[in-house]
Every structure is written in C-alpha cells, then in structure tokens.
Amino acid sequence: MEKIAKIAGVSKAAVSFALNDKPGISQATRNQILKIAEELNYVPRRKIKKDTIVFLLVTNDHAQSLDYFQRLPFFQSIIDAFKTKSYLKGYNLSLQTVSKLDQDTFSNWQQTNIYGVVILGTFLTSDDVLLLNKVHANIVILDNPSIENSHSSVVINNKEGVRSIIHQISPKETVLYVHGLPAIPNFQERNTAFKYSAQTKDFNLTEIKMDSFSFSETTTSEQQLIINTLQNNTTIVAENDYLALKIAQIVAEKKLTHNVKALFGFDNIRTLSQSPIPIKTVSVNVSVMVDMAIDLILKEYKVPVHVTVDTNFVEGDKNEK
C-alpha cells in the first residue's frame, strides 16, 4: 500500500479506504487509487471471500485456448482487469475455458460455490445463445451485441464508434472497407453501422475480407489482395485494430504508403504503437466494461440489464490501454 500511496500522493489510510470500499475519501481520489492499484496488479492482503466469480471464455475454431486469448491485447486487457477488480472487491476469480456450452457446464457451477458467471461472448454461436436463454443463473454476457432478453449484458457502442470514423472521412472519398473474419457479432454490427452511416457520403467504396486473428506473418494472398485493391489516395477502414496492423505492415513493406490517405481501426489495442504507419482508432474503455459486468453480477438484478459502454475516437499513437 505504501507504493500506491506514494504514487497517488495520499496517505496509506486513504489507500486502505479505497481498497476496502470504505467511506472517508472523495470518489475522484478513490478512482485514482484503484487505477494505480490495477496498474501495479496489487492484490489486497485480506481474506478472500468464500464466493467465486467465474470468468468463462467460450472458445471456437479461432479462439482455441486461454493462451490464445492472452495473446490478443484486447482480450488480455479484459482478463487482467477481471483479475484485479475481482480481488479488489474481495471475490475469488475462476478463469475457465470451454469449447462448447452445454448443460453440464451449468450443472458444474451449481454444484460449487459460484456467486455468478461472466461469459466472454465474443465467439458465442446461435446455439450457445439458445442454450443460455434456458439457463436460470446469475450470468452476465460480455462483448456480444446479439444477446437480447436472456441475461444481463455489457457491450461496446459499435454504432457510435463507427459514426466517429465516418465523421472523419469527406464525401466522395475512395474508401477500402476491410471486413474481419470470422464475422463475429461485433464486426457484423460495425459493418451494418458503416453502411448505414455512409449512405449520405457517396463513397467510392471497395470491400474485401481478411482474417482478423491470425498470429502469423501476412500471407502472400493477403498482400496481393491489398495491392490489387489499393488505389491512389485511399482511406482504409478496418473492422478492428488487428486488421489495421496487418494492413499497415503490408502497405509499409510494399512501399504503398503514398497511396493511403488515412487508416482507421477499432478497439485501441496496446500494440498499435508498433504500427509502421499511423492508425486512427476507436477506443473502448475495458476498465468500465469490466466494472459494469462485475456490478451486474453482484447486484443480481431480477430482470436483464443491458449496458452499452461508450467509445472515444483516438488520433494516431494516443493509445489508452
């Protein structure tokens, strides 16, 4: 606690108040202390409550393991925030992965001392959603805008984020829109929002598809795809920052930077600073998403509550995560 107090410029008593959720300090000071504690990965030296919160990662062909999620900066930020915030609130966190949701998954939870479950819903299938609609448990779905009326959820305001990108692009510009594969609900919502918002701009629009989540170097076919579709003075809009980084790499390697007027991404991942060319992006406040998800679990609302977390447009290297 002494290190946190020194960085925050407050007393150790103030740090104790913040970490133990006690009155006696302002909300601004509390937020500052908790932010520093999170950055330092601080875990309070107190007895963890008996109850456990499960953070469940549902895998698929693209997301095959916990290691996979931890290699993607956006998901790693979510995992780190859950670890810290669960401990700060006095709950144990169980980080689990399953390849498919089934009834046995929920039966196992009911037989143990589980307070609630937050499901990372990025890759949930329609079958998963149908199953969740039948489950009566304290569940919150994170990061899947297609979930409706079944359980409480916390999602990104994709529409607002896309509108902030569209606002940066002048009418009649040449635009290359890059779809992310697999076509997960977040990407689909961004695509729908882009097409709707772009109607009045009269863009000279070309659309292509690329794999969002591969860790290998860009493939020859991906390089050729960009080379063939990139026209002079093109604005590129990628559905996520992983794609934007791939495109930046190809453009730099093939010496095509003079053809790119601007490159936009979405999510504001940590590794954007490694881009060989500037990427403008939409920032998602992961800390707020996790706060909202845990709050929904702890309050156990009798009806589903759906929270949308706002986004912010970020210029260049002003990375927030």
Rank of each mutant, 00 (worst) to 15 (best):
K100Y: 13
G121S: 10
K318M: 14
I277Y: 14
T52F: 07
L272F: 13
Y115N: 01
V286M: 08
S126P: 03
A18L: 07
S275K: 06
L131C: 04
P182Y: 06
A63S: 10
E2A: 00
R163V: 04
N259P: 03
G121F: 02
S221C: 00
F106G: 04
T105Y: 05
M1R: 00
N285Y: 14
V284W: 14
D67E: 14
I236E: 01
D241P: 03
M292Y: 11
V155T: 14
K201M: 13
V175F: 02
W109Q: 00
V140Q: 01
I36P: 00
Q199D: 12
P171M: 09
A198L: 08
D202C: 06
N31E: 15
S86D: 12
E217K: 00
V54M: 08
A28T: 10
S94H: 12
Y68H: 09
P304E: 13
L245C: 00
K89R: 15
H306S: 12
K254R: 10
P73W: 15
A183N: 12
A238W: 05
S11A: 07
T234C: 08
N240E: 14
A198W: 01
E320W: 12
L142E: 03
Q27D: 14
N186A: 11
Q249T: 15
Q231Y: 06
T52H: 08
I247P: 01
N92E: 15
D202F: 11
L57N: 06
E38Y: 04
D127M: 13
S86E: 11
V251D: 03
V237A: 04
V140Y: 01
V58H: 06
F69H: 07
E222M: 05
V290R: 00
K321P: 03
